[in-house]
Amino acid sequence: MNLNATLVAQFVVFFVLAWFTMTFVWPPLMRALDERARKIADGLAAADRGQQALKDAEVRFAAIEAEARQNAQAILAETEARAATYLEQQRKAAEAEGVRLVEQAKVEIAQEVQRARDALRSEVAALAVAGARQILEREIDPAQHAELLSRLEASL
């Protein structure tokens, strides 16, 4: 019975146990733990990516919305400007038309006046000739007095 001998053997057994644990128990355990940590890390990363994607989408959405709003504003402004221009053009055209019509009417009136004056003049000439004929009691030969008559007509 030797306590020292068995104590040595006990320590050898202890180190065999430690070696066994290190070789066969520890690695699978660590693998399982690392696997779990990896899965959690992946999950968290995926969640982060999802959040980031959402944020990016929101930013993109905001940009698109702003652009659309701007475009709409621009289109509105352009339309307004075009409408104003069109109105202006129409107003000018109408004014010009009005002026033209007035001018035309003036011309027509002038022509009418001229025509009436001419008719009046020839009538006055004819009246003068008829008056003169009655005064002279004889026929006035238009051919003979053509020159006289046209001078009279022109002087009226």
């Binding site: 030797n2 040595v8 053997a9 006990q10 057994v13 065999v16």
Partner: peptide, 23 residues
């Protein structure tokens, strides 16, 4: 542990063998 306490080589070897297995 009694095997190891025999202070012989066979006792030591048996102790280590059976002790490891049992541990």
């Amino acid at each position: 542990a009694l095997l190891g306490a025999t202070a012989t080589w066979w006792g030591f070897a048996l102790h280590v063998l059976t002790g490891s297995a049992w541990a």
